[in-house]
Amino acid sequence: MIEVYNLTKFYGTRPAVQGLTFRAEKGEIVGFLGPNGAGKTTTMRILTTYLAPTAGTARVAGFDILDAPLEVRRRIGYLPERVALYDDMRVRDFLMFMGRLRRVSRLKQRVDEVLEQVDLTDRATSIIGTLSQGMRQRLGLAQAILHNPEVLILDEPTLGLDPAQRVEVRRLITELGWERTVLLSTHILPEVQQVCRRVIIIHKGRIVAQDTTEALGERLEGSRRILIQVAGQEDLTPLLTRLQNLPGVLAVAPRDGHGLEIRTQAHLDLRPQVARTVLESGYDLLELRSMTLSLEDIFLHLIQQEDEEGEPEPESPEVAAPSAEASEATPTSESKGEAA
């Protein structure tokens, strides 16, 4: 369990993290989401007792990070941001070394198990400096789970992995999350949606939102969107007018080709009515789907909101432009509706 109270850290006069308060329960995987420089790494370094907070405190696995740092260190597994490893050591020797520092029992056997889990068994005798970024990342993860910690703190665990490895690592994290508390930071949005039950979004050192992924979506969704593709007649104007007159419809706009986007009130599901109207007007319905906001939309929305509310800062738009990493995401998540 992780409990954070009003955590604040200043680097000189620059605040890195301000007034962070959140909890992560056992058996929960919490995603820590934010643009680069939002304070994710600083928070994690404080929770792992590597840095001291300027104000506030936190309890990790039941121990205060300031009063009992060693007890905290015993109970956490940590994957640091840039996966710092001893480049001159061999993979197995490194794990043996870390295991001895942590007094892991039946260490040899445990190292074999963990190597198997992160798929590095065949590189056990390689020198760490010769490993690829993806392998380093997995070795960092191996080191973090070696001692079966109660709490796992993972700073960008899938950075530098190829898509197949990413899936594998996510599966591993999900598995580990069953009986542990996992806090993972990332700026890859779909990852959070897949792995985490709950998300904490931070921006400029403050929490802008924390909730389940679904609840976050609902909270922000002022309206619902239905997208349809029709055929049968060239002119869509009559259909457009008829749809506009349906009760609950806010707006209808043409989309590319023979498509229409219908905005409706959030609490109504108008898909059956829309489908009926299309058919009754003499069109063929090719496709009908309802669109919900993706985490990416929520994220951008929240951060924009925050920037607008806060004092204007010219250097803020480096923010959340979807990075190359995030491009594997579909821009909006779509749930296919069945045509009635």
Partner: peptide
């Protein structure tokens, strides 16, 4: 330089 101090000082090492 390697950042491995972070590894040592987040393990139960004083």
């Amino acid at each position: 330089r390697w950042g491995t101090l972070e590894l040592l000082l987040t393990a139960p090492v004083r």
